[in-house]
Design a protein around this nucleic acid. Structure first.
Lengths: 220, 220
DNA sequence: GGCTAAAGTTAAGCGTGCTTAAATATAATG
DNA sequence: CATTATATTTAAGCACGCTTAACTTTAGCC
């Protein structure tokens, strides 16, 4: 098993933990765009190497070892993201893919040096927390999807999902960025679309969009 | 054939051109630390893809296509080297390996952006020329190995070979760096070792070392 | 020119990470 | 609880980039 594949599998399993309880093989396959058979295959190898605890038809769980490995990969990825974004000026929507390619290649030494240059950032450009070298993961401010907000409330962007490039491109185009203030002007019940005001300009956004922007409530 | 392997083969062939005429399969094998059989194998594939002109037992030559590909890889590598060295502060002797891992992963866009940040450098940290986006390769100043210098002559470092980490580490330890002035104080005929003065301090260096430091003559 | 050493090639095989198709286990539903 | 749908696993096979061992060509030397 080459490291890059292993790293990708472990990262996917690790990142999923934030959201649900135990990841399904199907989900891994989907996230990585590979067949289910490939997942079963790799799980056996990862299990043999002690990175996941895995029993046929039962469940998939990172071992302590696997979790450490994965957390470090997420760390590497997110430090690259900040570096690319803040230092090199790579635009929001391109940061993820670029970082994904680079995260496997840099030495830990280089990652640490970049982290230092960046002054030990706690969050990546999408608002996701960056695990520290010692394993600590910064807490996120309490946040809800923008789609939950009521009319005439005000909120501030804490995190955005980075699954979809077009989405990131679009929202950055209308001025949404981390810590940006959003005023919810109107919520339409029939389709849950919202009229929001960002930095003085108003835009209509779908519920789907609002589902993927997470905000801290400023005024209800 | 995955890109990374192809890229390595083409780079090795390309870089060799500076020195000799036509590269031998044995040399490729040595440089890449693989068997001769693997080289033959890959040459067939590269030939089929039109990157090298290759005839059994005859010779190995890059096609125009292969040369463009290779030149771009060398470009990528050397821009990474400058970036790592100048921006991130990676020490001289670690720059090559780190860049080698990264050169396969970055997008061309990122490379261009880094080049711009660096103000379109012409030489990498070892003094090797960086091919421009349009394919132009900066000329090197006229230079000779330090080992050719006569006693009481003065020279300036133009380029160093970057094959060996310990070597780079050692020479940087005694103050040798690009454009540094070196005064040759003494040359011993029996072993061709030299006593040189760098930045006020004197050191004895072997011929072997001096063979790998290339200098421009200031005073004969 | 003939012989040997060196260089290069072929053949067979291996580990990796996939694939598809078929088999089997689990979950969901009436 | 039986049946169907879904999830997972197995089996067979493939492309890749290697390896070693055996073979062939070329180059160097007398």
């Amino acid at each position: 098993m080459t490291n890059i594949s292993k790293e990708d599998y472990l990262s996917v399993i690790f990142k999923h933990k934030d959201q649900n309880e135990e990841i399904k093989a199907t989900v891994i396959a989907e996230m990585m765009n590979i067949s289910g058979a490939a997942v079963t295959d790799m799980l056996k190898k990862l299990s043999k190497e002690g990175d996941v605890k895995y029993e046929k038809y039962k469940g998939i769980k990172l071992t302590k070892k696997g979790e450490n490995y994965a957390r470090n990969m997420v760390r590497r990825h997110r430090i690259w993201e900040v570096f690319l974004h803040d230092i090199i000026g790579v635009p929001w929507e391109k940061v993820h893919d670029e970082a994904h390619r680079l995260e496997h290649s840099a030495s830990d030494e280089l990652i640490d040096r970049m982290e230092e240059m960046l002054n030990f950032p706690e969050y990546d450009p999408h608002g996701d927390p960056i695990p520290a070298k010692n394993g600590m993961i910064p807490k996120l401010r309490k946040h809800v999807p923008l789609s939950c907000m009521k009319p005439d409330s005000v909120c501030s962007v804490v995190r955005v999902n980075d699954f979809h490039k077009e989405f990131l491109n679009y929202i950055s185009g209308i001025g949404i960025k981390l810590n940006e203030k959003i005023v919810v002007e109107e919520v339409r019940n029939f389709d849950k679309s919202l009229r929001i005001n960002v930095n003085g300009s108003s835009f209509d956004v779908s519920q789907k969009l609002a589902d993927n922007v997470f905000v801290e409530i400023v005024t209800i």
